[in-house]
């Protein structure tokens, strides 16, 4: 599973906000240029970004191995024809390019997750969304990160206990109900306790804002994001029919 790996690569030094923006801009450019030339250029850029983030492509590949068959399904089905010659390779080109684009986007996700500690992601959310919604979103995202391992452990225990007691032979619906109910009951009492604890510690709408850092690496990342967006707009703008 992808997790944060401490380090001091360029990728680690760029703030979470800049990295999120860069990813969005990259996605925009990739959607605007889903053609062999565009994706080749973006592949080069993605490889460079992975290198800067101390994320070997090998690690990315290992992470998404399970996804590859799903990605391959679309072009395979699309090229299938009911009748001779049964397969039409030309029809697979578009979907294959689209599938490859998804893979590029996922590669950047891997780099982001490996270089960004949770608290920075949380702070980025709180900063990107202003006011009370931003406070709730930042707090909520932090709590999701906090609750995940707890719930995973609960669920693993339940499934184990079920297997021991031959729960495997119960009907599927019943098994799902057991797994979900066990997780839910325990978790609901947990969160009620958590909510009381939050209030006891003066949960407020206007806490000290998270520390903001904006270094040279951030400036470069933003510059790159702007360049990508401009490149995306270059092609999309006329397509929108502006000026005919």
């Amino acid at each position: 599973m992808l997790t944060y790996e401490p380090g001091d690569s360029v990728g680690h030094r760029v703030g979470a906000r800049s990295k999120l923006l860069l990813q969005a801009a990259f996605a925009g450019a990739a959607f605007a240029h889903t053609d062999p030339v565009g994706l080749a250029a973006l592949t080069g850029l993605a490889l460079a970004l992975l290198a800067l983030a101390a994320t070997p492509p090998r690690a990315v590949f290992a992470e998404y191995r399970g996804v590859l068959p799903f990605l391959a399904a679309a072009p395979a089905i699309e090229s299938f024809r009911l009748g001779a010659p049964w397969v039409d390779p030309a029809a697979a080109v578009g979907p294959a390019l689209a599938a490859y684009r998804t893979l590029l986007l996922l590669a950047l996700v891997a780099a982001y997750v490996r270089t960004t500690p949770v608290r920075e992601s949380e702070a980025a959310v709180a900063r990107l969304v202003p006011g009370k919604p931003g406070r709730l979103l930042g707090l909520g995202v932090g709590l999701v990160f906090r609750l995940l391992p707890v719930l995973q452990a609960d669920l693993a225990r339940t499934r184990e206990a079920m297997a021991v007691r031959l729960g495997d032979r119960r009907p599927l619906r019943e098994r799902i109900r057991l797994v979900a109910t066990a997780g839910l009951t325990r978790a609901l009492s947990r969160t009620d306790r958590l909510a009381v604890a939050l209030r006891a510690r003066c949960l407020s709408w206007n806490p000290t804002p998270p520390e903001a850092t904006f270094g040279r690496a951030d400036a470069l990342a933003l510059l790159l994001a702007v360049a990508l967006l401009a490149w995306a707009a270059w092609d999309v703008w006329p397509a929108l029919g502006v000026g005919g």
């Binding site: 599973m1 992808l2 997790t3 979470a16 999120l20 990813q23 969005a24 996605a27 959607f31 998404y64 399970g66 996804v67 998804t102 986007l105 996922l106 590669a107 950047l108 996700v109 891997a110 982001y112 997750v113 960004t116 949770v118 992601s121 949380e122 980025a124 959310v125 995202v141 999701v144 990160f145 995940l148």
Partner: peptide
């Protein structure tokens, strides 16, 4: 923002797109 909560533990803006 990177919590492994999407299908099969994946994550990220890339998954949304």
């Amino acid at each position: 923002v990177g919590a492994p909560v999407f299908a099969y533990g994946s994550a990220g803006l890339g998954s949304l797109f």
